[in-house]
Nucleic acid binder design. Sequence first.
DNA 1: GTCATTTTTTGATGTATGTCAAATCACTTT
DNA 2: AAAGTGATTTGACATACATCAAAAAATGAC
Lengths: 240, 240
Amino acid sequence: MEKEANKTSFVNFGRDERYSKFFIKILSGSYIVQTTIFIVFSNYRRSNYMKVAIAKIVQDIHLLPVDVLEDVLEHFQHMELPKNYFLLKSGKPCKHLWFMTKGAARYFYTNDQGKEMNTWFSLDTQIITDTTSFVKQEPAQESIQLMEDSEVYCIGYTSLQALLQKHHSFALWYIKLVEVHYVSQIEDRISDLQFLDAKQRYLKILDQYPDITNRVSLGNIASYLNITQETLSRIRAGKL
Amino acid sequence: MEKEANKTSFVNFGRDERYSKFFIKILSGSYIVQTTIFIVFSNYRRSNYMKVAIAKIVQDIHLLPVDVLEDVLEHFQHMELPKNYFLLKSGKPCKHLWFMTKGAARYFYTNDQGKEMNTWFSLDTQIITDTTSFVKQEPAQESIQLMEDSEVYCIGYTSLQALLQKHHSFALWYIKLVEVHYVSQIEDRISDLQFLDAKQRYLKILDQYPDITNRVSLGNIASYLNITQETLSRIRAGKL
DNA sequence: GTCATTTTTTGATGTATGTCAAATCACTTT
DNA sequence: AAAGTGATTTGACATACATCAAAAAATGAC
């Protein structure tokens, strides 16, 4: 399958021309070549707006004192990224924690047959990281790729570690983040795998994200549900 | 099913007669009535030995300064508990974090058909808690029961919270505990459920615990593996 | 040692899902 | 509008495991 095109996606901030344009070219086959995009706050009013957005997200997890919050926010970067962009590629350690405020992402690994198997989807507002890789900084087993143009706030592992060492209240914040956002999500996932059959898992994800079939291909949904595309089609047709 | 017997299990410490004996009576049916057992250190040499044991466990997770370690150890309790003892019953919040140094425990819930389904086993040295219930102090969905006479060190939720608030280094310790012991274990569990078939899951648990079939009934092992007892028998017989 | 109970195994059949191939539908390119 | 390509559905058959019942083995009480 060959697809060759120039496709551009603009990431545009304020009036600083140095950062106003990037090209991401989709080459033959499935390969996607991309650059890492670093965004700096060049427009005062815009950067203020963004800081308020991430401040609210941070404070909703666990209240930080104002001086700690300001220090923390200094370590976050804001990014607007195009569809198909890779936040993480397998084989590399996961060096960031992302807070997505808009968009969609998928986590996947490639199985022995070369087939991409999705393990998780993040839609709209969600925290994104490969926890296993992140906490030990070991090479990841899976990749994380955007499925839509997305907006994220990002903090690096080294920044996070520095903040943990520096602020007791930030350590408590991080504990709350892990307990509330990670534990709940993953225990829920285990319950699904253990107790629900294929149809029930499909109905549950439709319940949680009614428009998911407009945003994620059926093949990707099937692999996330741990079933084949054929089985998903039969479930959708009421034949199972 | 009716079973009525007096069955005693001794929990004996030093020479303080006030704490030297407890009776746990098994009444009709499956019901087990029990008391909560609090052990105090009555024998100086013995309590010193125990303190060294739990200190090593704690420090292996993440080194604490000596003054913090001493404070932390004050909050741990040591218990020797009999087989069948319930650390947690479903419907109640999980108020403790246990460090088991010897013994075996199982986590289970009861399904709609009244059948006990095991979700986890902890053997020998392992950290025991129902994380979902513990972090939010909500009623647990499952129970935790000892399958052998066991020895545990226990810290309460309120003690842990107080220590987290009091010591920055303890908060970092707890982060390490969750990251290393919880994340690794649960991600591994998810991988098993997603990628391994029944036989592979059985072979894996045999590999990890070669003597598990001597310590846990085959019915319990089967439910942990998410298969029926009949299927496990066929796997063991090489018919699958 | 005997008997009762529980645990485990075995046999026959059913169900949920996978595999392979082909057909159909939807989208993109020309 | 037509052709090409990719995504999805459908049909036929295979596999892994469940269900139900019965038999066998193991364990515990007396």
